[in-house]
Every structure is written in C-alpha cells, then in structure tokens.
Amino acid sequence: MRGIRLQRPQINPIIVREVRTRMRGARPYVVLTVFLALLALTGVGIFQLMAQQARFGGVLLSAQVGQGLFKGLAFVELLLVVFLAPAMTSGAISGEREGLTYDMLLATPLRPEQVLWGKLVAALSYLFVLIFAAVPVFSVVFVFGGVEPLALLKALALLVMTTIFFGTLGLFCSALLQRTTRATVVVYALVLLLLGAPLLLAMVWGQFSSPPGQAPPPSLVYLQPFSALMAITTITPSAGQEMNFFGYGDPVSGLPFLMLLWPGVIHYGPAGPIVVPVYRATLIFYGLLTVLLGWATAHLMLPGRRWRPRRSDLGFVLLLLVIGLAAYAWRDWWYVAPPRMG
C-alpha cells in the first residue's frame, strides 16, 4: 500500500479545532461578561431586597442572607445554562452539513463517535468556563454563611449534569434535523416542554388524583432541573421545627414563579415539611438520557445504513448497564417516596 504509515489520532482533532476557534473574536468574551454581570446583578438585587426587609423590621439572620443569595444565584445560573447549552450545540452537526464540510469530515477516518464527542466537549467546555467563572460570584455566599459547602457542590454537580444533558439534546436535534434553524426551534420546544409540562401537571395533580388533594409524586419532576435545584437549595432548618421554613426575603417567598417549583419537592407531612431530594434522580436520569441520546446521535451521523449495529454500540450498552445497575443498587438513595397523606 502506498501512502505513509498512519496511527490513530491522539487528541480529538475536532476538539483542537473548536478550541482554537471558540475564543476568537469578541463574542465569547461579551457572552462571558454579560453572563457574569447578570449573576452579579442578581446577587446585588437579592441582597438589597433582604436589606430593605430588615429595615422594615424583619428579623434577618446573616445565614438567611447567605441562603437567599445561594438560591437566587443558582437559579439564575441554571436558567442561563439551560438556554445556552442547546444554543451551543444545536448547530454543531447541522452546521457542518450547511457549511458543506460534512462530506470532507466523513471522508476522513474520524468515527462518528469521535466527531460527536469532540463537538460535545468543545461546546460544553465553553459552558463550563461560564459555570466555573461564576464560582467566585457564588463564594460571596460564604461571607454570610448559612450554606454548607456540600450544598454548593451539589448545585455545581446539577449545573454540570444539566449542561451535559441539554447540550446532548441540542446535538441530537442537530443530527436528526440536519438544519440549524429547525434544530434550534425543536430543541427549544423540547426544553420548554421539559421545563413546563411537569410543573403544569404538578399544579393540577390534586384535582385529578384519587382521593383528591394528593400531592404530586416526586417522580413527576425528576426531569425538571429547577425542581431539582429547589431540592438542593432549600435548606432544612436543623434547629427544631418552630423556625420558619423560608426566611424573610427568601426569593422563593418573594417570587410567585418559584413557588411553582414546590410541588413534588416539598411535602407537608404530619411531621412538618420535608424536602424530597429529587435532584439525585435528576442526576441519574440525565445521565441515562445523555448516553441514550449520544448513542442515537452517533448513529444519525452515519452517512448510510444508520441503524446497522456497530462495534461502538457495545460501549454505549455497557455505559447504560453501568448507570442502570448503579441506579438499581443505590435505589434507596435516590428513590425517596414521601409519606402519603390521608
């Protein structure tokens, strides 16, 4: 055979290329600046709100300020991530088709999984830059106290997992629909459905349950990232039940929208309110769905005979099995059913 001796690519070429171009031009810096400015403004706003309430005679503990800030910042950041992640990936594969570089890419020995992985990592790495650049903003919380570092880590894990899942959803739509505009429209429709449908169902659940008035089950909001975040950021008071569940000036008691996130997460039982840790199931199901979507996307990227079994399918099956088995083994950890009310 003519030609030179060749070996497998070492670093994924797509990642190298995307990383080279990702930070070129003013746009990435503008997005980063706006992102951090929005977060900082949120923090200042929450602090002002609480300080105002304290001026009108409320009893305000420093810890409550910390908790309020944590909650507010985490929600805004999750909101930004949920809407940025699909935007970053919905053009990743369709863009190659539209940019007429897809054939050139397919003509190389790169495998679809490599392209997929490269695209995902490249898009997510920028989002991770946003998330991690915001960590210093979050650290303001510790000035006031009231939030344990573990809660911050949980919130970070949820942010990262949500980014990965919504990013993969964008990639899947991009590969399926082959046109960036169509993919973007569809992925946002899916995002809205994922965010809105569980909340709407939870709102009307009591009217249709038997006996009527039942609280919606936590499983209803497993895929709702904001409900999961609610479960993380609602800090259960450790010192007795007489303390207010939500402090003064807590954004949850101030913003009616956030109250919609209670059902399925906060249950009022005979022993007082409890927080169901739905975020654990969210992490697991996002993991499973990410692998499934990635698997489908890898097949969708093939030029012909897309659904013929491939060797890489084994990897995906293995990954699914590992997550599935782990979820089964630790089902007591994530499957928490609240006590039924009479």
Binding site: L6, Q7, R8, Q10, P13, R17, L105, P109
Partner: peptide, 10 residues
C-alpha cells in the same frame, strides 16, 4: 493541520 490530525499524522 486539522485534517492532518483527522488522519492521525503525528
């Protein structure tokens, strides 16, 4: 360089 990487040139 990108395409050379795709073909695994060191």
């Amino acid at each position: 360089d990108f395409f050379a990487r795709c073909y695994g040139l060191e």
